[in-house]
Design a protein around this nucleic acid. Structure first.
Lengths: 134, 134
DNA sequence: GTCAAACTACGAGAGTCGTCGTAATATGAC
DNA sequence: GTCATATTACGACGACTCTCGTAGTTTGAC
């Protein structure tokens, strides 16, 4: 009953180096789908910076590098926020050359919490419109 | 465009003493509907204790006193969590005698973030079932 | 008035969080 | 090999959070 995201891990510890990932040498720990906890997901989404990241990833068609999401904080803080999102199970991260590509774990989240991510994204968009004077 | 919950505040500062509230002498500050922020709501819901409280309130038919929601923490900590929920705009609180009655601000939240609360409650229920071995 | 019940205010402690800068690492191009 | 780019690890700082106990307030019943 483990849903697999393309290029997303499903085992408990780290991404296994079985397939020929293009120039992949380091692997990142991701929680297994069944280990994702609602409280941690909500906590991860409760930060403005991280919510911005998630919205960017949701709007993007392909994977996005960390440096492609501009945040008004330092590089190390950006790294920190991406890690929180990954450890909460909200995003998956894969090394690709000197970059780290990020993608939403939509399928996993929808399997566990149907409609939740969609409603949060819609709520964020609605609030942005409302605060911008509509 | 301000949605009114029965016995819920709508102005910015505190509940107004206009109607004949039964034995009401103290009033509590609630955020106006338009001042509720998604990030604060998510943060309020991200705590296990507070999520428990919200689920209890959602399941209850009428208003619930603070002492009717048993939490494995002290009284003062319980008070703290109820205040966080109130200040985030998730619940409304009214003094009634020696008790403080609590109710979800469902209408306000649904007006701002349609379907969000429902999805969070469903997600919490789903996770509980899943972790209990289904 | 006295008394108990429900809740709060206050202060405190341990822990976590968001932020930063600097030093270090991995990769790809040269 | 050198070099630039992208990201991380580490330690630090202030701020916030969760928890508690004790003392206090408000209310309703007596």
């Amino acid at each position: 009953m483990t849903f697999m995201t393309p290029s997303a891990p499903s085992s408990s510890t780290a991404t296994r180096p079985d397939s020929d990932a293009p120039a992949a040498g380091r692997y990142l720990e991701h929680p297994a789908t069944e280990d994702i906890r609602l409280e941690e997901v909500l906590h991860a989404l409760a930060d403005p910076m991280r919510l911005t990241v998630v919205r960017e990833l949701a709007a993007a068609s392909a994977e996005v590098a960390c440096s492609e999401v501009p945040l008004p904080v330092s590089k190390s803080t950006t790294t920190h926020h991406f890690r929180v999102l990954r450890e909460a199970g909200v995003i998956c991260q894969v090394y690709r050359g000197t970059s780290k590509m990020n993608g939403l774990r939509r399928a996993d989240l929808d399997a566990l919490f149907p409609g939740l991510l969609e409603r949060v994204l819609a709520a964020a968009a609605a609030q942005e419109d409302r605060l911008a004077g509509k």
